[in-house]
Design a protein around this nucleic acid. Structure first.
Lengths: 162, 162
DNA sequence: GCACATCGGTTTCGTGACGCAACCAACTTG
DNA sequence: CAAGTTGGTTGCGTCACGAAACCGATGTGC
């Protein structure tokens, strides 16, 4: 009677949450983005229980989001680094951060700012764009079933009477 | 000895996760984005236990992410609708969805597609932009502490020796 | 007028995920 | 050789969650 798994749902959101959606995983990944590499650093920064951290790091390595490597011979210990798959979670973390900046902290009280080095401009929003980077109008977007959705699920969202 | 709370961490990501980061909440919000309004619809679509759904809806209403309204007199029951605060989670859901599309399903097998009505172009990425919508170079971004970060936290990320 | 369905829950109970703290082994340093 | 650092494992207790039964208020069929 474990936690309900989402891995059978035909939904990218649910499947992603199934991999990184527990309480600690995204914070571990956040630390990795901030340059943390070692078990003890994750532990000290997050205050996570050691057995839970062990479990999360192992799962993230198994999923290919982190890689674990022994350090070069003069240094002892191992280090955990983000893979491309892990670095691709940048948008997820940024979306969460921007929402919290706005709705939890409020303008001017952000704990972390991300700037473009060259211009000094801070990242303030994430804009939807097509595959070649052309921005899309957020107000004109419609959702529709893709090739991965079984017909019975499509039917659930159909209007009851046209 | 409950779950560790994140509400004391100086981090927008942690604070946001504290509000919407459990297993079901973001899926409830996803359903709300797809037009679901009623308790029984959330229950049927998600397969969530009723007591858990009750709890999640109540918390979301308490946080101002959903509003609960009795339906207009001819219809019985109540309905749950997203507030602006809730609709602002669109980027979070989209970021999760795009990651899952890419790393779980793969191109051409997405369960859900979001298109711009006018052009038919699908949302394929989220691009960082500044406050006025000017796109920023993802490779040239640097993170630095904002006004909300206490000095002792800043020190943890400082290089050990310059 | 009365049985019955629907909606939106509440209650009870059992399991497992998680927090905490103690312990541990390998390796380095003084 | 003793002590510290790193990267864990082990026990134990609690609480969050899942499943299913129950429940009251509001319609609805006849």
């Amino acid at each position: 009677m474990s936690r309900k798994r989402f891995d059978d749902m035909p939904c990218s959101i649910a499947r992603t949450l199934d991999l990184v959606g527990d309480w600690w995983t995204l914070l571990v990944i956040r630390e990795a983005f901030l340059g943390v590499r070692r078990f003890s650093e994750f532990h000290d920064h997050l205050g996570i229980a050691r057995n839970i951290l062990t479990d999360r790091l192992r799962k993230l390595v198994a999923e290919g989001i982190l890689v674990q490597q022994p350090k070069a011979p003069p240094r002892r210990g191992t280090e955990y680094r983000l893979t491309e798959k892990g670095r691709d979670l940048w948008s997820v973390l940024t979306a969460l951060r921007l929402w919290g900046d706005k709705w939890v902290y409020g303008a001017g009280k952000e704990p972390l700012i991300v700037r473009e080095r060259a211009s000094g401009a801070a990242v303030a929003q994430l804009l939807p764009a097509d595959a070649v980077g052309r921005p899309l109008d957020p107000r004109g977007l419609v959702a529709l079933p893709g090739p991965g959705t079984p017909p019975e699920v499509v039917a659930r969202y159909a209007p009851k009477r046209a």
